[in-house]
Amino acid sequence: MSALLQITGVSKRFTRHPNLAERMLHAVGGPDATQTVHALTDVTLEVARGEVLGIVGESGCGKSTLGRIVSGIYMPSAGSITLDGKPVARDRGGAAEKLTTQVQMIHQDPFASLNPRIKVGQTISEGPHHHRVVPRAQVDTMVRDLLGRVGLEPSYAGRLPHQFSGGQRQRIAIARALAMNPDLLVLDEAVASLDVSIQAQVLNLFLELRRELGLTALFISHDLGVVRHVSDRVAIMYLGRVVELAPAERIYNDPQHPYTRALFESIPVLGTGRREFHPIKGEIPSPLNPPPGCAFHPRCPHAGPRCRVEVPALSPAAPGHGVACHLNTGGVELAA
């Protein structure tokens, strides 16, 4: 299994520098107003060619930041992202400059991700035209093919985005991404803003395209059911770290990390007679000031003294199943 996408030790911090007044206050003894958000901490993941890796977590856990780093929109603060061994982006004056066309992203909100003033045909053709993905004379044919492929009329190419529904727009966004003939798709909550029936249609389209084109994808979602439906492997994220990583069926049948278990217990289940569900107690801590040790310990029912000081590493609980929890590596008590 050769990894197509290699995410190695990636961290991302967003720093808000204090303004002039705050710096002056700090100089005369006031508090330091520099705020740093630890969006991602030491994330290491691999995605094999043809695989769909699901990324699940609560809002604010860093999953969208991960998607943007993989898409070359942000530079990681530390670590590296390579596709086929080549870096996805490089740093140019603090901003990311994307180096590859082989990663394409599909955004959450199809009402925001299409330029309202550009005809959808041009939205789809712009990238391939500029990068000469196909000879320029064939771009129009390709656009029509793609529109057909995502289930829209080829004649819609001359319309503007506001003439389409949300589901249709998301199909257009998928067509735009596929037009670049990418090796890897990043879907950031790609169905979260759609109605449930439309979600199913778009997901089925994705599965169909995956079968036909052998797509590799990073599927980011907060929706456990959706992720299970489309993913080969699933990574569970909590406060910027991967806490559990396993094949999809395994993680759903045999979750190991207390957070993963709590997530599954918090899903209301229809028709099984279970009337109560258990929300995870407490709030997700602020990434401005993440707790020391295991980030989940303030909410974990099994937390012990070791969890408060030592960060658990992702270590194998079974072949292909990684868990970042001290319960799996010698217990929650501090070593003497």
Binding site: I73, T101, H107, I118, H130
Partner: peptide
């Protein structure tokens, strides 16, 4: 800050195209 600019940047399209074709008309 809107996603269509991010989409254009992550295609990637050159800066002048993002500026004049995507940002300016809006």
């Amino acid at each position: 800050r809107k996603d269509y600019i991010e989409a254009a940047r992550s295609t990637p399209l050159p800066t002048y195209r993002v500026l004049f074709r995507h940002l300016l008309p809006n």
